[in-house]
Design a protein around this nucleic acid. Sequence first.
DNA 1: AAATAAATTTAGATAAATCTAAATTTATTT
DNA 2: AAATAAATTTAGATTTATCTAAATTTATTT
Lengths: 221, 221
Amino acid sequence: MASQTVENYIKAIFQLTEREGGSVSTSAISQQLATSAASVTDMLKKLAEQKLIAYVKYRGVHLTPGGKSMAVEMIRKHRLWETFLHDKLAIGWDAVHEIAEQLEHVQSATLIDQLDAFLGYPKFDPHGDPIPDANGKFTLRNQVLLNTLQEGDQAQVVGVREHDADFLKYLDSRALHINASLLIKEKQSYDGSVRVETAGGAETLLSSKAAQNIYVKKNLN
Amino acid sequence: MASQTVENYIKAIFQLTEREGGSVSTSAISQQLATSAASVTDMLKKLAEQKLIAYVKYRGVHLTPGGKSMAVEMIRKHRLWETFLHDKLAIGWDAVHEIAEQLEHVQSATLIDQLDAFLGYPKFDPHGDPIPDANGKFTLRNQVLLNTLQEGDQAQVVGVREHDADFLKYLDSRALHINASLLIKEKQSYDGSVRVETAGGAETLLSSKAAQNIYVKKNLN
DNA sequence: AAATAAATTTAGATAAATCTAAATTTATTT
DNA sequence: AAATAAATTTAGATTTATCTAAATTTATTT
Ligand SMILES: [Mn+2]
Ligand SMILES: [Mn+2]
Ligand SMILES: [Mn+2]
Ligand SMILES: [Mn+2]
């Protein structure tokens, strides 16, 4: 059985691969997990011995099929737990990640299968990220970043690209939660900021940076 | 923050104290946790340094107030998780313990408070053991062991003294689950075995040993 | 193409939790 | 009260995961 530490490394490598593509560097992992580069090098050797990664000295790593399947299983568990915490225990989307970070390491196939059933086989977690099914399949979805919308466009929030707790609390304060409907009232071309109207008619000014971190599904006109 | 290992030691000491009373020996802990006596001695020194236990060389240990409150918190978490697994995820009472043994180590006060609320502030877990409330208070209950009942007595199963998975599955097969009503049809004085009738009229012969491990609430006549 | 900077690995330590085997203390027999 | 047995502790190692500082390799400047 893989230790919690090994599981966290494998998940980190998977997510860094998704974001950057190609091979993942020692320093990227070091930063992601907040451990020294020296410790990462040590661990990479062990993961390579266990055939979870392919490791070329000085050149970074990528997951083997075995490592990838472990990573997907971890992500499945993490996101199912986040969904449970949010939907059943009413814990905010800014707080679920930290708790799921612990819950994801509980070992029991039955537990996860039953949890999945209890939640009604959800396809997306509280941040709008897809939850892989028992076979590791992710659901795809049409989505664009809010900053690509034009004046007059109507859309619905479907996810966030940034998971920082402060950002999520900020969105909550503007009623910009998952499924919120919105209308682009104005878009400034010089700085990319957008004025959006949310349900009930409230208007909010979003910075370009904020708009680049919100995924939406555009409505047909 | 206490490690999972420390938490398991503290919980074991609490439960051994409850069962035996007085102070707990190195060998008792060693047996309970399936670790060598030498390892236990090492750990006892550390726990004493952290003021979680009072330790007298060669004479055993007992919990300090701090240790006891940690133990009660662990038991609260363990039993709430067992209740969740059983009531919400439909996992059998013979399987919940092992999973809760892991879940009990997740650190988050919010999580436990919300879980407690979600479950409706249950007073007893799937084995009929009391769940301490947020202040550490256990609910007391009138209960006797099934082997103390007489012919003609009516009662309801409220708990089990033995948590062994095989015993629990055996009880399931006889419909002797929590809340099951029963009537003592016959009691053999020479070996203590009892013939009981359960709901629907089915009869089962229980050995003295089995009868000594089932808690019941006796009905008034 | 050197020189310099940045990234990575190696060397040497440390802390937590565990083990077996040997020494010591306490309990039980004779 | 000795002798013997049982329980407990100490000594000496091991494994996992981590660190800092030094050495090495790769990348970027001049
Ligand atoms: Mn984690
Ligand atoms: Mn998420
Ligand atoms: Mn445990
Ligand atoms: Mn229980």
